[in-house]
Nucleic acid binder design. Structure first.
Lengths: 259, 259
DNA sequence: AAGTGGTCTAGACCACCTC
DNA sequence: AGGTGGTCTAGACCACTTG
């Protein structure tokens, strides 16, 4: 019945007893199941290497159909937490997912890190865009765009200089809006559904102006990131060109294979 | 903006006539359907903004069940090519996916770009690891690991200095192996299933040694990338710490939202 | 009100892995 | 040879969006 591998110190975690589903809840059944398995993995009740019960058994024990169970486990596979092997079973391979560098703003990232971000607004007005920004937004250099320039601080130190260009009419933030909240937060609040972003990460040495803004010596190495953000209709909602102090900031990400 | 919203001006692309499925093929039906829709999107037959037929109709026209069609479209949603909206339909939002920065080696990336990569092997032997590498691999500093050090060139110019540490016994490449093929290629050929990698991207200025190796002036900005790679069992198969010429190389990636 | 995707069921056969 | 995931069918009801 209970498939226990030769890991003798298998934790006592009986899915039939630990997972409960509520058919009246508006939360989809597959999601309820996935969440509870994920929690068991994160808590260590299902350690790395542990095998899940097979899909048929799991379905029977929970009173659900196999496709529903498959959908639940499938979402964990997508997250990279477990792997399925035909004929062999489903095993836990990670107990947490590092999800940095998702579609979130620097402000959100720093807030999550409890780094007390603050923002100084240098520019917040409609202007004609520089050639590079016009090209990225698919506009002409005569069109007006919202030009934003900010310096982001965390823990009392400057971290990055952020320059953004947005199509006119999308947003009209006050300086206070920009001080308190990240650009992505403001866009979401304005009803924009962020869908995807193309980023290019590079490096170069600081100009005198950047060095002064970021409290670095001239010639210090800076990380650069340029980004084009699309909404759910495929329209371009933002072009940004940012520089980060390499001594204070790195990009962390995890990649997953397709095999 | 080429948004087609009315069926009347729908492009001439009839899925019933353009998509064919072969029930005898070993290729899954959902995959056959997904590939052909993806091709239609890439070719422009289904432009950005176009709406797909609804799932029931598509299923009926192709003689397949709705879950199979859903699985096909679902894979396109995962790739970010189309979006589904309940009550509204499924629309094309992108016509290509930039898939750089996936789980592939620099060698593969450069080969794909037709950049004629070549490699100079500086170190290829078993050694005790530096503290940082030992910690990343979960080994002690007394354990032997395979130490690799290479300089990658493309288009006749140096691009990056690559330093890798692998658990002993996993691989025993000759210098020729390393010259001709990327590390990930060698690992796959050795039967290792690459599953995920954690990367940290940063920047710093070049040391004299790096400057000489990479043909850059001392003090030039370099991109740095550290990576820990796991196989499908969760075991660590590689730790790498690499430096790239910022004047010749950037990291491109696209991020997708969860909404 | 009609159309469409979101979820779910209860089966089935096959391919692959392990024993 | 038996167990397991991979794929597929033919339905069903619901929630949301749009005209």
């Amino acid at each position: 019945m209970t498939a226990v591998r030769h890991r003798s110190q298998e934790p006592q975690w009986d899915p039939a007893k630990q997972i409960s589903v509520d058919h009246r809840s508006p939360v989809p059944l597959y999601f309820q199941v996935a969440s509870q398995i994920e929690e068991a993995i994160a808590s260590g009740a299902l350690p790395v290497g542990a095998r899940l019960d097979n899909e048929i058994e799991l379905a029977g024990n929970l009173g659900l159909s196999r496709p529903t169970i498959r959908q639940a486990i499938g979402s964990l596979v997508d997250k990279g937490l477990v792997v399925r092997k035909r004929g062999a079973g489903t095993q836990v391979v990670f107990n947490h997912v590092k999800r940095s560098l998702q579609l979130s703003s620097l402000h959100d990232d720093l807030t999550a890190l409890d780094a007390a971000p603050s923002t100084r607004v240098l520019v917040n007005e409609l202007r004609t865009p520089p050639p590079e920004a016009a090209r990225a937004l698919g506009l002409s250099e005569q069109d007006q765009v919202l030009h934003l320039e900010r310096v982001r601080h965390a823990r009392g130190e400057p971290i990055a200089r952020l320059r953004n260009y947005l199509p006119a009419g999308l947003l009209a933030p006050t300086d206070e809006d920009l001080t308190d909240r990240g650009l992505y937060q403001l866009l979401r609040a304005a009803g924009v559904h962020l869908h995807a972003a193309q980023q290019t990460i590079g490096a170069r040495t600081a100009t005198d102006e950047e060095a002064a803004l970021l409290d670095e010596p001239t010639g210090a190495a800076l990380l650069t990131m340029q980004r084009i953000t699309h909404d759910h209709t495929g329209a371009i909602v933002e072009f940004g060109t940012h520089t980060y102090r390499a001594s204070r900031y790195t990009f962390d990400l995890t990649l997953r294979g397709d095999t």
